[in-house]
Design a binder for these strands. Structure first.
Lengths: 123, 123, 123, 123
DNA sequence: GTGGTCTAGACCACA
DNA sequence: GTGGTCTAGACCACA
């Protein structure tokens, strides 16, 4: 469900939080849906539970998740079922900007980049 | 020439190193080309000189840059003038993978993503 | 364990790195062995933590040490338990060359030098 | 006459100064003897003249060398023709200490080290 | 507790 | 002018 890369330079808790935000915006995590427990995720990704906790706490503070005493955290009900395409595309802008910056610095043109995206998409 | 984002979570010196690597692979920084001085870059990006220095030192250790005592650092001559398209595309894979992961979590389809890439590319 | 001389002209972080390399080659620091913490070493030698850190980072880049997030750095497991005598003697060649150059410039002969080495060795 | 190693980490001007000190102590540079010109040495070792100048200025300040307007610098006459063996051995102590520290860290014993010194001495 | 990143600023070696 | 080293000290990520 999540892909965490400890070598990417981006803090793990931020990677996780960002991915949960996207799954909520995309509707794959609907309001009320339960998240994996801290321990479960920590085990699965060989990461310290506190790191997972930190991501959850961050999202709770943002109002994306809700803490339920004794039960798993859930997606806040005020999250829309699925965000409008517009908003979801907006959440993709950073990734697109990164890609374009990298491509231009590598002197690759639009067609080459799009071909690569299509190829990787199919895999 | 470089875009440094202090909020991205990726250390600034790593962002800079990566971008220089790409400009060298892309041929925009040819072998022998001088890099901006540490102080110049530091001023321009409102960043501490040591942070720039760290990126340069990293690339020197990798053999991408060459130190010239008392003179600006230059691109190593063993760097090919421009890497083969294949290699340059390979250097783009991480960015593409990030984009696709994000898009899928946001439940966006291929066409929407490619349309966004094309739009942002033109800006 | 380490002798750092801030007046020698050789950067402190390089002195430290070199000594760790030797202790690893000599087997006194076996694969998996934990190194003193950055803060501990910094305190002990009245040196800034970043200086120690720089030595550790250098050795990590060389593959001699391994970083363990949240835990002390350790000697890389790919380091042989102890290098062959041949290799260890090779690592001593620079020191020997320095000594011989100095001795010859001082017009000291081999016997005098060896006598001095033996004397100092016993101390 | 001099061996300057830009990679050793020790500033070049300090390497040069140290070697001149030794040649004077050893008697190979007798009082009144002329030193190579700054330009000559700079050319020979592919080093900036200011670097050589700095070494000469340092030794002048120490009283080892004397500046002669329009003529080459010379060894000060107050330098003894050759220092006593005792003093010369004292000037070798740092090198010996370095060697012994390195050898011990490499877990080499006295015999191995002395054999290496004898071998290198003959070369 | 561990190491990593960054700043502000001093001073050094070299061209 | 160039880059390198070091300090003192803040704050972060992770265990």
């Amino acid at each position: 469900m999540f892909i965490l890369n400890p070598l990417s330079g981006i803090p793990i808790y931020r990677q996780l939080a960002e991915q949960i935000r996207r799954l909520v915006a995309g509707g794959q995590l609907a309001p009320g849906a339960a998240l994996p427990s801290v321990r479960e995720l920590a085990l699965e990704h060989a990461v310290n539970p506190m790191t997972i906790s930190k991501a959850y706490a961050l999202l709770e503070a943002e109002g994306v998740l809700v803490r339920n005493r004794g039960k798993p955290m859930t997606v806040a009900s005020r999250s829309a079922t699925q965000a409008a395409p517009r908003e979801r595309l907006a959440q993709l802008e950073d990734e697109v900007a990164n890609l374009i910056l990298a491509a231009r610095q590598l002197e690759l043109d639009r067609e080459q980049v799009i071909a690569l995206v299509e190829e990787k998409w199919s895999e």
